[in-house]
Amino acid sequence: MADISTPSPKSQRNQLGDPSPAMNTVQTTLDKFLTAANVEAVYGPPISQGENMVIPAAEVLSVAAFGLGLGGGSQSSTETENTGGGGGGGGGGGRVLARPVAAIIMSPTGVRVEPIVDVTKIVLAVFTTLGFMAAMFTRMAKPGQRLKLND
């Protein structure tokens, strides 16, 4: 007598591969990603130097995205056994950007906030602005020159 048995949900899950390790990895990474939403992510630990204490403050931008996919199928090759297969995959990526913004200085005279200026970024922005304005000026000046040539 042929024993035709259908695979139990548990065995089907094993054929498809247990998704829990992948899900755990994604969950752990997402948890780490969400730590960027805390105050501690922006302010560093206080640093004491003599009578002064400094708390660094930075801006944090965190971007992440994940995706997972699982699939499977079964096929009856003979009357006696079922064969099946499955697979899954996933991927993701992310980036965390941090930029110092200010330092909170606590001295015997009081508490003050000293801004941290990124000179390189500002100089690059100045050159980009000048380049953009020069390009716009050149572009706007050209049709006038052509008109003069045509006249």
């Binding site: 302010y43 992440a64 930029r99 913004v101 906030v113």
Partner: peptide
């Protein structure tokens, strides 16, 4: 699943010894 988190410092609230509160804003000059 995923997203974006932008976290930036805004201010410091200082409470002096005499109980006076002072709010120091943090400006991003850059």
């Amino acid at each position: 699943s995923g997203g974006l988190i932008w976290n930036r410092p805004v201010a410091v609230l200082v409470r002096a010894v005499d109980g006076r509160d002072q709010l120091l804003p943090i400006s991003d000059l850059t």
